[in-house]
Computed example of a mutant assay.
Amino acid sequence: MKFKTLFIINPISGGKSKEHLPEQILHTLDVQKFDPNFVFTNRVGHAAELTEQAIRENYQLVVGVGGDGTLNEIASKLVHAEIPLGIIPLGSGNGLARDLQVPMNFKQAVECINRFQVECIDVLKLNERFFFNMAGMGYDALISEAFKYSRKRGFWEYLKLCIQKFRDFEPETYRLELDGKLVEQRAFLVSIANSSQYGNNIYISPNSSLRDGQMEIITVEPLNWRELVLLGILMAIKRTQKFPKWKAISAQEVKIFRQTDGPIHLDGEPLRMAGTLHIQLFSQALQVVGGKEI
């Protein structure tokens, strides 16, 4: 019996034409195991709608072909649905795919689908929005917003924006309630980590795991220009915990109280949300097709 499979393709992820992607996928996909259908998104929110339709039509696998934003839309509808999420990463950061060890090489990613090794990962929910990789506020939310509207993609554009936005950024004081314990912190950034990295192998929380039943709240104290450069280097070499102004606290439920409403990011997508944020963890709530042998 073949697995009824829907490939949801974001045609603008990564900036390259996706017109011939279905044929390229079929060239490698094991069609003796999978019965594939292909659909392209045409607007924000469309991937979520297509996933809801796939659930109604009894699909057995939904594959996101795109970046972290596309995957967030799809995965948010698959939480507790007992339908696995497959990933062919074509975004600019691909944080979730990298943490799951899904190859960045297109053909190898399809071969991971063929192996169909399913595992369960934790899911986080910020107010009413699910996320799977990383959320944050402060400096990284500002950069996420700027990156979304930049004409260029990739690591070097992200680095350029980090440099440009640093001069005028003003840190904020946050009140954090971590499993009932109150902490007040003036911070350059606050990240809520389900996985270890933002994307592009930039590790803000190197020891975080998608499978351990807890999240990490990362705070970085206000810093100067030289310290920002050092932090960037340490994130790139997966030694972020060596930075003196970096702190991680593990928790299962978190409330964050900000002075005002403001920007945040969820899986790299910039949003504006209320000053009070409530983050919950749902253990092993999403099935995924992993990239490594398990």
Rank of each mutant, 00 (worst) to 15 (best):
K2E: 05
I8M: 13
I9Y: 06
P11S: 07
G14L: 01
K18Y: 06
E19P: 04
L26Y: 06
H27A: 15
H27R: 13
T28H: 15
D30T: 11
F34A: 00
P36T: 09
P36W: 11
N37P: 04
V39Q: 03
R56L: 10
Q60N: 05
G67K: 00
E73N: 01
S76H: 05
S76D: 02
I83S: 02
P84F: 04
L90E: 10
G91D: 03
G91P: 04
L96S: 00
A97G: 05
D99E: 13
V102H: 09
M104N: 12
N105H: 10
K107E: 14
V110F: 02
V110R: 00
I113P: 07
R115Y: 12
F116M: 10
V118T: 10
V123W: 05
F130Y: 15
F132T: 01
M134E: 09
Y139C: 01
D140C: 02
A141M: 05
I143L: 11
S144N: 00
E145Y: 11
W156R: 12
W156S: 11
Y158W: 08
R167M: 10
E170I: 15
E170Y: 08
R175T: 14
E177C: 13
G180K: 01
V183Q: 13
Q185A: 14
R186E: 15
A187E: 14
A187M: 06
V190D: 07
V190I: 14
A193K: 00
S195N: 11
N201V: 09
I202Q: 08
S208E: 07
E216P: 07
I218F: 08
V220C: 08
E221T: 10
E221V: 06
N224I: 07
R226V: 14
L228H: 05
G232Y: 04
M235N: 00
R239D: 06
T240N: 12
P244G: 07
Q252G: 14
Q252P: 05
K255R: 15
K255H: 12
L266H: 09
L266W: 01
E269I: 00
P270T: 00
M273Y: 12
L277M: 07
I279Y: 05
S283E: 15
Q284C: 05
G290A: 12
